[in-house]
Structure formats: structure tokens, C-alpha cells
Design a protein around this nucleic acid. Structure first.
Lengths: 208, 208
DNA sequence: AGATTGTTGTGACAAATGTCATCTCAAGTA
DNA sequence: TACTTGAGATGACATTTGTCACAACAATCT
């Protein structure tokens, strides 16, 4: 397996080279010291995996990765960085990188490189702790705090699905009038004006 | 490194056992054939990693993982499944699992297990192709495709802010009647019934 | 000029929505 | 038993909303 190591700090890239070449399935670890050099080397030598820092002076890692992937989607990019930054993670995922792990966690670097070479995606544990905030935060809204009952909660979700009062009434086995009253109650508890604001509230505050 | 393999198909769990035990750093791969057994074995033997299927008859993988993690957050859970399902991926991430890869991609299983044991998170490549859809899609909705004009787009955003027709009219320097007409036009273009559904549509499809 | 088109607006209408006072009924509770 | 409480329902009411037909007007094209 052939790996290209990219870091503008020779100390770091040297250390990584040692770590990786200690593994017997990883020979010939090439090294680049900046984004531009990384792009050039990656496209000329076509390594299996590029292990790259993000913050670099001449061309940052994300942009470099983008250029590489544009030419060759088979080259796997594994970001190895000091920073835990939402924006970076987001962009890294967006351009189709194969992983994002922290330098602190580089003990497992060889395993990660292998997994990435095999087509898997690898994230550092610390990073994934942030993922739920970005994509999965369901249900951390505190209905209790506003005195919202279970039925009212159900009603809110149905409104957020675009149902009319009549449809909600049918689904909850209640009269339409009752639904209207519940709606009224919910709206006043949340200090909203109408069902549309309730739907907006749901998507913005409850299940963003 | 100690691994617990969970799959209700003995053929699969047997194959996995062979694959993993071929690695010299993985001994004693225990096997469970269902969710309940998995929980019991995981908590009694405390393996480093649990490789688990999701669909199982008695107790599904997600729920089993949840029980295990509740007792011991250090046990890493790696889901190995046949299905590529948003809902599963979402839940798996939500409960703090360490990975989710497809059975088709199991060639890299040993690497993945090592990476997971080291605290990294691993996703199958096919799965990550879906991630940007879930967390990174900003503004890729194609208004053009539905023949939505710029003004109509503005109206949609105001509706998604919970404004009434009157308020929208004031903001856009139009008559309220005009806003109503535009609303009518937008709703029919998007095949929706009322402003609340429009708000839902906005948060679900346009700016999720 | 005459015709076409698109934007903006009006008026009328039915339906849906939100609010309020009030009633019923079952389940506790003193 | 008598009292309170809460969920569910009703009916009345004012607003808001969505639809439709159509008109006024400017810009553009023939």
C-alpha cells in the first residue's frame, strides 16, 4: 500500500513516515510539505491514501483534496489535523474525503489508513461526538419546561408533518374541536400565533 | 484484542469468526446469535469490540447496543449490516456506536475493528455518500425545476419564518391580495395544500 | 397602433383556523 | 357522599387563508 504524507511541519511528516513504514504492508511513504506539492505528487504517483494536514500555508488541505479528487476519485484522503472544527469537518465530508482524525489519536493511524484504503470512512471519536449535534439531534428539546403534555407533543409533530386539524383529529381519535383547543393551548404555551409558526418552531428549535 | 460477533445467521457469524481469527492480534472471538444473548455476553465478557448485525429476531442490534453502552461506554460497537437505511444510520450514531459498515464491504473488517478499538469511528463508503445529504446540504434545492420565481422564493422563506400574508405583503411591498395569489401559485407548483405544508416542505426539502 | 405578456391588485367566496365560554363525564380525593 | 380535577367535546364567533375571476397597467413584440 502506498501512502502520501502531507504536512508543512517536517517534524510531523517525518514522525508519520516512521510510524507508517513500521507497518510491513506500507512501503514507500512519499512526503509533501504543502498543498500544492501534495496535489502534484498525488496526481503523479497516485498513492492509495493521502494523509494530510488541513492548515498549511500555501494551499490548505481541503482545497488540495478537492483538486486531487477532481482528477482521481479513487485516491483516498485522510485528514489528520490538530483542530476540531465544525466547519472543517463539514467541508471535508462535503468534498468526499475518506476520513478526519486528530493528531492526538494517531496511535491508530495505521489501522485507519488501512480501513480508508479499503473504502471505509474513519472519524476520530472526538469528532463524532460533534456529529450528532450536526445531524442527529432529535429529541433534546425539553417539552416539560413549557408544560407540554404527551398528547400535545404528538399534535406538534403532526402539525410539523403538515396535517390539518381534521386529519390530526382522525389520527389521534379525538374530535376536531378538541384538537383546536389543544392547538390553542400549545400555541399559548409556546407563545406562537398559528400552526405555521408552530411548524417553524418545531424545525428550528425542537428537531433542527 | 477480544471481539464479540453477533448475527442470527450462524453462517455469517461463522464466516466472520474465521476472518477475524485469521488476524494474529485477534484471539477468542466469541459469538452470540441474537440481541439478548449479545447483551448478556457483552456485559459478562467485556470484549473490546462488538461486531453486530442490526436486524435480528429477538432484540434488534440498535436496542442491544443501547443496553450494552448504557452499562459500559468503553465497549465499542461496530454495526455490520446488509441494509443501507437512513433511519438505522441515524439511530446508530445517536446512541454512540463506533461504526456502521456494510457486509458487502467486509473485506476491510479487521482494519475497521482495529480502528474502532482505537477509538476511531468507521463508516462504509457507501454510507458516507449519504451523510452529506443529512448534514451538509445547504441550498441545493432546485427552485428552477418547479418554475419558482425569485419573488416566490422570497415568499417561501418568509412563510418558513412564520409570517402572515399581511406581514409578508408589508415586507415585500406588495398588496396582501397579491401575496395570496403568489401563495396560491406556489402551493400549486409544489403540489401542497396550505402554508403550513409549505413551511414543512421548506425545512424538509429545501433547507433541511 | 394593436396584440401579447407579465406583474400587481381587487372583490367575492368557502373553508380552515384560533379563541372562548360552557358542558359532560370519569377518576380520583377529602 | 360530595367535591375537585382534567380530558374531551360543543357551539359560536372573528380572522385568516386559499381560490378564482377579472381588471388595471406597463413592457414588449408584430
Amino acid at each position: 500500500m502506498r501512502v502520501l504524507i502531507v504536512d508543512d511541519d517536517p517534524l510531523v511528516s517525518g514522525a508519520l513516515k516512521v510510524i507508517l513504514e513500521a507497518e510491513d504492508d506500507m512501503e514507500s511513504c512519499d512526503v509533501a510539505s504543502g498543498g500544492n506539492e501534495a496535489v502534484k505528487k498525488a496526481l503523479s504517483t497516485r498513492p492509495d491514501v493521502v494523509v494530510m494536514d488541513i492548515r498549511m500555508d500555501d494551499l490548505n488541505g481541503i482545497d488540495a483534496a478537492e483538486k486531487i479528487l477532481k482528477e482521481d476519485k479513487d485516491i483516498k484522503i485522510l485528514f489528520l489535523t490538530t483542530f476540531l472544527d465544525d466547519e472543517y469537518i463539514n467541508r471535508a465530508l462535503g468534498i468526499g474525503a475518506s476520513g478526519y482524525i486528530l493528531k492526538q489519536e494517531c496511535a491508530t493511524l495505521p489501522s485507519s489508513v488501512r480501513a480508508v484504503a479499503g473504502g471505509q470512512i474513519v472519524f476520530g471519536g472526538k469528532i463524532v461526538e460533534k456529529l450528532p449535534d450536526l445531524m442527529n439531534r432529535t429529541e433534546k428539546f425539553d417539552y416539560e419546561e413549557f408544560g407540554i403534555t404527551d398528547k400535545e407533543k404528538e399534535l406538534i409533530e403532526l402539525v410539523a408533518d403538515g396535517l390539518s386539524n381534521k386529519e390530526i383529529a382522525d389520527k389521534m381519535f379525538l374530535g376536531e374541536g378538541t384538537v383546536r383547543n389543544m392547538m390553542s393551548s400549545v400555541l399559548s404555551k409556546l407563545d406562537l400565533r398559528d400552526r405555521t409558526q408552530l411548524a417553524c418552531f418545531y424545525y428550528q428549535k425542537i428537531k433542527p
